[in-house]
Simulated assay, not measured.
Amino acid sequence: MTGGTDRRRTALASVILGALMVVLGLVVLVQAVRLDNGDHAIGPATMPWVISALLVVVGALVALRSARDLGAWRDDPQTSPQDWKRAAVLLAVLVAFAVVAPYLGYVVSATLLFGTVAVVLGAPARLRSYAYGWCVAVVVFLVFDVVIGISLPAGPWGF
């Protein structure tokens, strides 16, 4: 595989990631509209608004910059079947996370999500990818549950 092909695939994957971030940001925004802060300036609806705004802005910037970079790597106009398989696996993992999170809990589901995404995207050490995924999932769970006061699915183990 040539360097140009690798760079083109990276740019294409980044465009797809940016677009998914924008879509996810819009979904979070729709859900945030349903929340109410009551008579407080900062409440349960504040954080989803911030997260959705960041997802939309960062996702759009990533997609636009990567689309620009994609034009620079036109030496291989074909997208390989491997690229589409990888995208399909990532989508399936995201859907599986949404389905199993209420049953397994956020920490376990997010650990599987983060670790699998890292492995699919080419992380060299699988065990380390899942360990990092667990660390991120625990930190996010604690921030939401303890600091913000928003309960994430606890699952049968309580986390």
Results as ranks from 00 to 15, higher is better:
residue 141 F to N: 03
residue 41 A to F: 06
residue 34 R to P: 01
residue 54 L to S: 11
residue 21 M to Y: 01
residue 94 L to M: 08
residue 100 V to A: 06
residue 158 G to S: 02
residue 124 P to K: 14
residue 142 L to G: 06
residue 21 M to P: 07
residue 42 I to Q: 05
residue 156 P to D: 05
residue 87 A to L: 12
residue 43 G to R: 06
residue 69 D to Y: 02
residue 9 R to H: 09
residue 113 L to C: 07
residue 138 V to G: 04
residue 36 D to Q: 02
residue 56 V to M: 09
residue 159 F to Q: 10
residue 92 A to Q: 15
residue 87 A to P: 00
residue 21 M to I: 08
residue 93 V to M: 03
residue 70 L to H: 08
residue 112 L to D: 05
residue 72 A to E: 10
residue 143 V to W: 15
residue 128 R to K: 07
residue 3 G to L: 01
residue 25 G to Y: 11
residue 151 S to L: 08
residue 14 S to G: 14
residue 1 M to A: 09
residue 25 G to V: 12
residue 31 Q to V: 00
residue 146 V to H: 15
residue 65 R to E: 04
residue 89 V to S: 13
residue 103 Y to S: 09
residue 53 A to T: 06
residue 64 L to Q: 10
residue 38 G to M: 00
residue 91 L to D: 08
residue 61 L to M: 13
residue 137 A to K: 09
residue 32 A to C: 04
residue 30 V to A: 09
residue 113 L to N: 10
residue 117 V to H: 01
residue 140 V to I: 15
residue 136 V to E: 06
residue 39 D to F: 08
residue 105 G to H: 11
residue 40 H to G: 06
residue 116 T to G: 00
residue 59 G to K: 14
residue 98 A to K: 00
residue 2 T to P: 00
residue 86 R to M: 13
residue 84 W to I: 07
residue 106 Y to L: 02
residue 159 F to L: 14
residue 51 I to E: 15
residue 132 Y to S: 08
residue 119 V to Y: 02
residue 27 V to C: 03
residue 65 R to V: 12
residue 70 L to G: 06
residue 8 R to Y: 01
residue 53 A to W: 00
residue 5 T to K: 02
residue 21 M to V: 03
residue 74 R to E: 15
residue 153 P to L: 03
residue 7 R to M: 08
residue 58 V to H: 08
residue 55 L to N: 12
